[in-house]
């Protein structure tokens, strides 16, 4: 908590120019105005404490982690053993990181593309039943994904077949692409599950773009494809980036879907499953989990930092309805 004090002082003078403090009361208010910054950094510190604990403990051995609180760490006990162990020859962490990428990258890009089409369609193409279809689509956000896992797994294992009544002939609706136990099955599933939320989020944004923009483009003879490509996509970069970040995180950190779809196929396992198995029976190897957690979190953090710069004021100045 002592960290917050200097930061408050640091930030408050720059905060309000042109409002020179005079007299004790005003000076007190000057201090008060710094409080918001103080609160911000207070929250930030609180937020980082759990992670900090994890970080420190990732450099301590099993007895250290169990024996004393992480804030009592002494420099002499720091060790890279945990990291050594998870990168060890048998663990296959590198391969699993690649598997994670093979899941998360398509599972991020493809839903964004498809959902952006759909969001644009729902927002700016006038067709019959648009509202009803949109509501139906987005309502499916409420479905807990667990219900779809087994039917989907069955589809990936054997394709989808439908037996026509009366005729007793079976039609193959989805052929068996032999996807069971592959990362492809995982990202396909992610793509489907992400759709309602992606459409919800993107539609909310794309539909609030100013109407005159489209009318002007229309008059210039642009068709939907051109408008979408040249106008909507560039304007939607902030929301696309926001969704990309979340979708990447969710798919990168997903355990349930990967676990169901990949099952016993060790060579296709993403890091989440590998790490969960690293803990060992009865959590005997739990002391390597902090280190593994950090390795796991590293990639999404890089993605976040890379995309964060797109949330800047001005890209869509004047484009949000008022």
């Amino acid at each position: 908590m002592s960290i917050t004090a200097p930061l408050v002082n640091d930030a408050s003078p720059g905060g309000q120019p042109g409002d020179e403090p005079s007299g004790i009361i005003d000076r007190v208010y000057g201090f008060l105005r710094g409080i918001p910054t103080g609160i911000l950094w207070f929250i930030v510190v609180i937020w980082s404490i759990p992670t900090l604990g994890l970080f420190v403990n990732s450099f301590r051995n099993r007895d250290g982690q169990r024996g004393s609180g992480w804030w009592n760490v002494s420099p002499s006990e720091l060790t890279f053993d945990n990291y050594d162990q998870i990168f060890g020859a048998r663990s296959g962490l590198l391969r699993s990181l690649l598997n994670s990428a093979a899941i998360a990258i398509p599972a991020t890009i493809i839903p964004i593309a498809i959902a952006a089409f759909a969001a644009y369609g729902f927002a700016w193409i006038d067709f019959k039943g648009r509202k009803g279809l949109f509501i139906a689509t987005v309502s499916l956000l409420a479905i807990p994904l667990q219900v779809a896992l087994i039917p989907l797994l069955q589809m990936f294992v054997g394709g989808a077949k439908y037996t026509v009544p009366l005729l007793d002939k079976t039609i193959t609706i989805v052929p068996d692409f032999d996807l069971a136990g592959t990362t492809t099955a995982v990202w396909l599933t992610h793509t489907g599950f992400a759709m309602p939320f992606a459409i919800f989020l993107l539609h909310n944004y794309i539909s609030s773009l100013p109407k005159d923009l489209f009318e002007a483009a229309r008059i210039d003879g642009a068709n939907h494809f051109t408008i979408f490509w040249r106008l909507v996509l560039p304007l939607s970069i902030p929301v696309l980036a926001a969704f990309a970040i979340f979708q990447f995180l969710w798919t990168w950190n997903d355990y349930l879907i990967a676990n169901t779809m990949i099952g016993a196929n060790a060579s296709q396992q993403p890091t989440t499953i590998l790490i969960a198995n690293l803990a060992g029976d009865f959590g005997r190897n739990e002391h390597v989990l902090p280190a593994a957690g950090f390795v796991q979190a590293f990639v999404p953090l890089v993605v976040f930092f890379a995309l964060q710069r797109y949330f800047v004021r001005g890209i869509l100045a004047g484009s949000v309805k008022g």
Binding site: A11, T51, L54, G293, Q296
Partner: peptide, 26 residues
Amino acid sequence: RRGERVAKSIIFMPMAISLVGASIIW
């Protein structure tokens, strides 16, 4: 504000940590 990125990144950090990590953290 100054340090906006740092503050936001730290608040965002938990989203990047998988649930296995989060359960250990907590």
